[in-house]
Each structure stands twice: as structure tokens, then as C-alpha cells.
């Protein structure tokens, strides 16, 4: 399944309520007050729904930045174009 990084960043933007121009690869968990435990939960559920996958707990917890999320999703067969 092929997806664009733009799509991933849009998902972060809409789920975390952070303007898309501020969603960079470096955006990190807990570095922005809007990305807290509740937002992280919503993000995990949105990622699972969007990409049709079920994340392992370690991967959910390890999803600490946009770049890390993109890297983790590769393990689940997501290809970035």
C-alpha cells in the first residue's frame, strides 16, 4: 500500500489540532502540549483506521515523532511515495 508523507502529516495535523505547516518530521511527542496522552491515543486509532493496520503496543509507545511514525509504519507494509 502506497501513501504520501503529506497524507501522514495531514493526519497528524487534524488529529493533534496542529496547523499542517507546523507538522514537520521532527514534531515530537510531548514537545507540543497538544500532543499529550489523549492526543496520542487518538493518533494511534486514526493511524490504524487510515492505514488498515493493528499496531503492536511497543510500536504505539515508540511513535514519538512524525519521522518515527513513518518509519514504524513501514514495518506494517506502508510504502511512502
Amino acid at each position: 500500500m502506497s501513501h504520501s508523507k503529506f497524507e501522514l502529516k495531514q493526519l497528524f495535523s487534524s488529529t493533534l489540532g496542529i496547523p499542517s505547516e507546523l507538522v514537520t518530521d521532527e514534531l515530537a511527542y510531548n514537545a507540543d502540549p497538544r500532543w499529550d496522552s489523549t492526543a496520542h491515543l487518538q493518533l494511534v486509532m486514526a493511524i490504524e483506521n487510515t492505514f488498515g493496520i493493528t499496531l503492536e503496543m511497543d510500536d504505539m509507545l515508540d511513535m514519538s515523532s512524525v519521522a518515527k511514525a513513518a518509519e514504524i509504519l513501514k514495518k506494517y507494509g506502508v510504502v511512502w511515495n
Binding site: 511527542y29 510531548n30 499529550d36 496522552s37 496520542h40 491515543l41 494511534v44 504505539m60 509507545l61
Partner: peptide, 8 residues
């Protein structure tokens, strides 16, 4: 832990 998903 405070900011983690595990907090739930």
C-alpha cells in the same frame, strides 16, 4: 508516564 498512552 504522565504524557504516555500508558497513563490510561
Amino acid at each position: 508516564l504522565r504524557g504516555s498512552l500508558l497513563a490510561f
